[in-house]
Design a protein around this nucleic acid. Structure first.
Length: 442
RNA sequence: GGAGGGAUGGCCGAGUGGACGAAGGCGGUUGUCUUGAAAACAACUGUGGCGCAAGUCACCGGGGGUUCGAAUCCCUCUCCCUCCGCCA
């Protein structure tokens, strides 16, 4: 494909925000952290450590210069046969080395602390993100479709799914414990149909390239997308090796280009994948316990984009529309919610949630989160591009959005499309994927 | 899982302790020549940190060690290749 221009061989680990920007915009940074309600973000500590780090670096480098020139001199002296002088210099350089190693040790400590602090500073929000301390400040900015009305009481999917024998809760729990389920027959096929149709729409109409990525990734990938170090408690991982189960395809998809330099004319790069997602979901036992709304394993189609910085916002808009279009074609009423600063995820600079109405449980279900990360992930994962031939490299902007999260869409279809006779009408766009069936009957 | 062999710049490939940030080739950019192109010839051609700059430091898969000095010696980890075993 020729996207890779070169690969970084060595370099520091993730570097998060631009430290120079931070040094020069202290007040803006403080303001951003306040807006995010990020009281524990160690940005001041990071700045202090940065100061210390640079002081040490200057000292160490001056000494290293002394050592380098001294060593060369020793070599020359030996060759010239001036052994005595060489030995004198050698002894002195030995002392210099000892001083260097003490300073280097300190420098390493400072750098480690510095990086740790940097990795825990969230992404500052875009200027137009609604400012509020929590999700109470989220704003519905768009609504589409009409909630279905019934001349009977619509069933929630946990009843309906069981009655139609398309969701088996008991067996799921028997096999794997609470918050596990299994889809059966038309239920399983409906999920397969949705997954296939989503992928087909995104690849054929929206220009995404389909990917089948690994579901187990290394720690380094999780750091790249911002899931680590702060959110390790929602991730599953292998006990013996450095393997983490993905909580979303965003992780492997974004890391496809980790440590790479993309060609400017290759942008935007757009990927889509359907993968299982694994999450600990450490919410209070009992909350969202019924049904398949909040589970430890679910299927999701995810879109990820790598774009030129100047196009970030328009790419977010088109990404969000790529997701919304699916809801429309499925005939599911939805709304777009602008997430407030206090509810913004650690990595997102701006985020829209798409929520679908589910008539049975009477709730708006989040089926997609569309985020612009600016260069936040790109810095962590070291993903760059070269704007001009031969010019300096810059970080790309990354975005991602679900398109869409599956079990919740299944919930909405089952609940909204249920009929008086107990059957469920299959949305027209899915019928070719369901062997032409129009309904799910018990 | 067992036994061997590897990892050097965009690519290929030299280098086994001292002027090596690294020969040579390919590729790329620019120039000369040419009506134009090709060929030939010449020059340039890695990344990052700190610094206003001059400059300086780091980087030969990662980490650690030996040494006045490490691409080069030692330890360790990772990845790749070959053969055997196992397997979808």
């Amino acid at each position: 494909m020729g996207i890779i221009f070169s690969v970084r061989k060595k370099g520091r680990e993730a570097i998060m925000l631009d430290i120079r920007w931070m040094r020069e915009h202290r007040e803006e940074l403080a303001e951003a952290m306040a807006k995010l309600n990020a009281v524990d973000a160690p940005w001041e500590r990071a700045l202090d450590l940065d100061e210390e780090r640079r002081t040490l670096l200057t000292e160490v480098e001056a000494l290293r210069m002394e050592r380098n020139t001294g060593s060369k001199e020793i070599g020359r002296l030996f060759q010239a046969g001036e052994t005595e002088e060489a030995n004198v210099l050698k002894a002195r350089m030995g002392e210099v080395r000892d001083v260097i190693s003490v300073l280097e040790e300190r420098l390493n400590e400072v750098e480690a602390e510095y990086e740790n602090a940097m990795l825990r500073i969230p992404n500052p929000p875009e200027p137009d993100v609604p400012v509020a301390p929590d999700e109470g400040g989220n704003v519905v900015i768009k609504e589409w479709g009409e909630k279905p009305s019934f001349d009977f009481t619509p069933e929630p999917h946990w009843d309906l799914g069981e009655r139609l024998d398309v969701i088996d809760f008991e067996r799921g729990v028997k096999i794997s414990g609470s918050r596990f389920y299994l889809l059966k027959g038309a239920g399983a096929r409906l999920q397969r149909a949705l997954s296939a149709w989503f992928l087909d729409v995104h690849t054929a109409q929206h220009g995404y390239t389909e990917i089948y990525p690994p579901f187990l990734v290394r720690e380094r990938c999780m750091v790249g997308t911002g899931n680590l170090p702060k959110f390790g408690d929602v991730l599953y991982r292998d006990a013996e090796e450095d393997y983490w189960l993905i909580p979303t395809a965003e992780v492997p998809l974004t890391n496809i280009h980790r440590d790479e330099i993309l060609e400017a004319d290759a942008l935007p790069v757009k990927y889509v994948a359907s993968t299982p997602c694994f999450r600990r979901e450490k919410v209070a036992a009992g909350r969202d316990a019924r049904g398949i709304k909040r589970v430890h394993q679910f299927q999701k189609v995810e879109m990820v984009k790598f774009v030129e910085p100047s196009t970030g916002r328009e790419e977010l808009e088109s990404l969000t529309q790529d997701a919304e279009e699916l809801c429309e074609q499925l005939g599911l009423p939805y709304r777009r919610v602008a997430i407030a600063t206090g509810d913004l995820s650690f990595v997102a600079a701006i985020k829209y949630d798409i929520e679908v109405w589910a008539a049975g449980c009477g709730e708006w279900l989040e089926v997609s989160s569309c985020s612009l990360f600016r260069d936040f992930q790109a810095r962590r994962a070291n993903i760059r591009y070269r704007p001009e031939e031969g010019g300096k490299t810059e970080y790309v902007y990354t975005l991602n959005g679900s398109g869409l999260a599956l079990p919740r869409i299944i919930i909405a279809i089952l609940e909204n499309n249920q009929q008086a006779d107990g059957s469920v009408v299959i949305p027209e766009v899915l019928r070719p994927y369901m062997g032409g069936a129009e309904k799910i009957n018990g």
